[in-house]
Write a protein that binds this DNA or RNA. Structure first.
Lengths: 71, 71
DNA sequence: CAGTAGGGATAGGGTTCA
DNA sequence: TTGAACCCTATCCCTACT
């Protein structure tokens, strides 16, 4: 997602997800309730933006003593 | 087509196409010669997998700005 | 309703760059 | 080196046609 009016676009995306759920990027884009604010975005943009917004553990180091079950 | 035993599944699909031709996905699936290896696949899976396997050119051009050191 | 063809959409790994 | 933005494409979905 490029660069401008980012806050408004993020709010709109969140509202779209609240209405349709995640993974319904095309539906969100085509809803007249959101289409004006998101007119410069593609469904792929929304998917990637949501992935970044919902990222859980970006900053902290992993506890070196932690062992995952699947490794 | 999901993810595991991919190589074996691809070989089996190819063998099935050799026997029945393309577009005979249901026939391939139900042939006891192939049904074990393809038991987790649908006729639609086979159609889509073959579309990928038989693709001649990549779907999109690579980013022309990207140059790897090792290529 | 079944099956197939083909366009469209999504998921997730990969790449770029500030 | 990190992370937001953007790319790649296998897989999955939708619909028309038969």
């Amino acid at each position: 997602m490029a660069n401008q009016k980012t806050a408004e676009e993020e709010e709109t995306l969140l509202a779209g997800i609240a209405k349709y759920g995640t993974g319904k990027w095309r539906n969100i884009l085509e809803d007249p309730e959101f289409s004006v604010q998101l007119q410069y975005r593609t469904n792929i943009d929304l998917k990637d933006k949501w992935r970044n917004m919902s990222r859980i553990n970006p900053i902290q180091e992993r506890n070196p003593n932690m062992v995952r079950f699947n490794e």
